[in-house]
């Protein structure tokens, strides 16, 4: 965790209330997200820096982590809704049992975003990752835009932060974006139907 402090990572926040919306760090004060190379489920090496130019939601999770399972459907939704606007969800599994358990999970839960298999090196780069889920929002310059969510966060909170980074608010003002519907659904369940 000392490493997290050194990276300016620690917020230890975990709220589910839209009222607790957090402000993005100012551009000049943002720190670069440590780069890493991990493999995806096909064995292809993937670097975090490959996503430069995109807004990235970097989620450390595990198949055995209950609160992670609550967030994953949101991430599937975010990937579907915002991918065309230069947004990507990247999930890094911290399962010790590796692809043997992660691949069936990907299939069973129909994950539509990139999943990588984490290791201790990456764990240390990101502050030790003692608690899961831990999620970072990374801006288009590859920098941490917000302090991380350690533990289960709120869907609204993620939406607000993603919007502030990809500029969804402007799209919504201009008219007929599906993003408006999922935003409404997050605030008033059932509004999207």
């Amino acid at each position: 965790m000392a490493a997290a402090a050194g990276l300016g990572l620690c917020s230890c926040s975990s709220t589910s209330s839209a009222a607790n919306t957090r402000s993005a760090a100012n551009q000049a004060g943002r720190k670069a997200a440590p780069d890493f190379t991990l493999t995806d489920s096909t064995g292809k090496p993937v670097k975090l820096s490959d996503f430069k130019g995109k807004v990235v939601l970097l989620n450390f999770w595990a198949t055995w982590c209950g609160p992670c399972q609550i967030e994953i459907p949101w991430f599937i939704e975010f990937e579907q809704e915002f991918k065309s606007r230069g947004f990507e969800v990247v999930g890094v599994s911290m399962d010790d049992d590796g692809w043997k358990v992660v691949k069936p999970y990907i299939t069973e839960h129909k994950l539509n975003y990139r999943i990588l298999l984490g290791d201790e090196t990456v764990s240390q780069l990101y502050g030790g990752l003692d608690a899961l889920p831990t999620t970072f929002l990374i801006d288009r310059d590859g920098k941490f835009a917000f302090s991380p969510h350690i533990g289960l966060a709120g869907k609204n909170e993620y939406l607000s932060e993603i919007q502030s980074l990809i500029g969804t608010k402007q799209s919504v003002e201009n008219g007929t974006r599906r993003g408006l519907r999922i935003l409404a659904a997050a605030v008033v369940p059932g509004a999207a139907e």
Binding site: M1, C12, G128, S147
Partner: peptide
């Protein structure tokens, strides 16, 4: 500031490996 508060309160607020 939030960051300063986090560092200051780190031992109390952050989930520690124990």
């Amino acid at each position: 500031g939030r960051a300063a508060a986090c560092v200051y309160w780190l031992p109390l607020l952050c989930p520690a490996q124990q």
